[in-house]
């Protein structure tokens, strides 16, 4: 998806989506035929609490320009009771870490998307793609 200079930059988003809410939301966006940019690579995970920050760093290392973590709404939607809170706290600390190593923390985004929120999923992808286009490609040293 990386393009040469004279074409518009198309960001690559890796999205870790939990199977109970966010992935079902993405499915709903699909079956409802909602339009959203094709820049997202969805990865199905059992729970947003399963997304180890190591994998997010690996995603950046391997060419992602942005990483989305999609989980169930707080406080009570998580299928595993509190996995979404684990994701929230890790996300907060990871942002601080990324800033320290010189990566714009806006490249990581955490969203609560329920199984009924196909609209929200499409909107999040649209917004995130726009934002990453403004930030430009992530070029690691």
């Amino acid at each position: 998806m990386k393009v040469s200079n004279h074409e518009e930059f198309e960001p690559r988003i890796v999205a870790f989506l939990c199977r109970w809410c966010a992935y079902a939301g993405a499915d709903l966006a699909g079956v409802s035929r909602l339009e959203y940019p094709p820049n997202v690579i969805p990865i199905l995970v059992p729970c947003s609490g399963r997304v180890d920050p190591q994998y997010i760093l690996l995603a950046f290392k391997n060419g992602a320009d942005g990483v989305l973590i999609g989980g169930c709404h707080t406080p009570n939607d998580c299928h595993y009771v509190s996995g979404n809170y684990k994701a929230l706290k890790r996300y907060a600390l990871l942002k601080k870490y990324l800033e320290q190593i010189g990566i714009n923390p806006a490249r990581v985004r955490l969203e609560w998307i329920s199984a009924t929120e196909g609209q929200k999923f499409a909107r999040v992808i649209r917004e995130f793609t726009e934002e990453l286009k403004k930030l430009g490609p992530l070029r690691l040293r």
């Binding site: 950046f60 870490y97 800033e99 190593i101 010189g102 990566i103 714009n104 992530l138 690691l140 040293r141």
Partner: peptide
């Protein structure tokens, strides 16, 4: 206070991203 210096005090060079990047300045 200092996540890099605390968690990666002896191992930052072998981290997945092991150098200061220029991205955050944007």
């Amino acid at each position: 206070v200092d996540p890099v210096g605390t968690f990666h005090r002896f191992t930052f060079s072998s981290g997945v991203i092991n150098k200061k990047q220029e991205d955050a300045k944007k």
